[in-house]
């Protein structure tokens, strides 16, 4: 394993985070704090508890997941798309480094940033609502697994995109709606039976549900199914990345 190369890519990507601290960290934290103020404190005060959990606290896992998903995708997508866009990808592709190591560097950095954000948002939430974590190991596991999975997904988008519009298209038009409709702000048990069945086709439901279970011990779907679906998506992303590098799709002619 070319450890120096993985470290070089990882540190290079992390350096971009510190250089763009306002965009990378402060901005999502402010957005999430606004969600807490509006949904948690202002509206949440008038909402009945869900599954015995105060509404303000109930939305914490969903909000963290919302940030985790969007940031993982955008960080990883931008991380690999930008060198493709400016042409500096030639250096990575001509280096004595395997595809696994390239993915480790880029996806590792993107996932690290997302996990950091998730933790910061969790810490921020404690200023607004009373949050307890019943299963901290599971919470961290879901956090890391989701960050890695969606960073891989972002990496795929960054390879696929041939313009900035495409880079934004999937996060904005698909992932954000799926997250909002995936039970981030409500329990899917609150939906009519038909829409509840439809919602079960949304993979984000399983992520939010599993993550929420690690906080409060309550979930919309079985924790095992949540974990299984997350692993299935992770596997699908790994297969797609393997195919990209095997064929050289959008990287080599």
């Amino acid at each position: 394993m070319n450890v120096h190369a993985v470290k070089a890519i990882y540190l290079f990507e992390m350096a971009r985070t510190w250089r763009t601290l306002l965009q990378s960290v402060v901005s999502p934290v402010i957005s999430t704090a606004l969600y807490f103020i509006v949904f948690g404190s202002a509206i949440g005060g008038h909402m009945a508890p869900i599954d015995g959990v105060a509404y303000g606290a109930f939305i914490v896992p969903g909000l963290i997941m919302l940030t985790l998903l969007t940031q993982s995708i955008s960080n990883a997508a931008f991380g690999i798309y930008f060198p493709r866009f400016v042409g500096t990808i030639y250096e990575v592709l001509s280096a004595p480094i395997s595809y696994v190591e390239i993915v480790l560097g880029y996806v590792g950095a993107a996932a690290t940033k997302s996990v950091m954000l998730g933790i910061i948002i969790l810490a921020t939430s404690t200023f607004f609502v009373d949050v307890k974590v019943l299963h901290p190991v599971w919470m961290v596991s879901f956090l890391v697994l989701t960050a890695v999975t969606f960073s891989l997904f972002g990496f795929i988008i960054g390879i696929w995109a041939d313009g900035f519009e495409k880079l934004q298209m999937i996060p904005l038009l698909i992932v954000t709606p799926l997250t909002f409709l995936g039970g981030s702000f409500y329990s899917i048990d609150m939906l009519p039976p038909f829409w509840r069945s439809v919602t079960l086709f949304n993979p984000v439901v399983y992520l939010v549900s599993g993550f929420r279970w690690s906080f409060f011990g309550v979930s919309d779907v079985n924790i095992g199914i949540s974990l299984g679906m997350t692993l299935v998506f992770l596997l699908a992303c790994l297969v797609a990345v393997w195919w990209i590098f095997r064929t050289g799709y959008r990287l080599k002619s």
């Binding site: 070319n2 120096h4 190369a5 070089a8 250089r19 060198p83 400016v86 042409g87 280096a95």
Partner: peptide, 28 residues
Amino acid sequence: LVPQELKTDSFESVWATVAFSRGLFGKK
């Protein structure tokens, strides 16, 4: 490899980008 076109990391410092290249090629 020195490519034909000026492909550079505009926002990086000279030192950082050269150090990155060394690491990328597996050198400590």
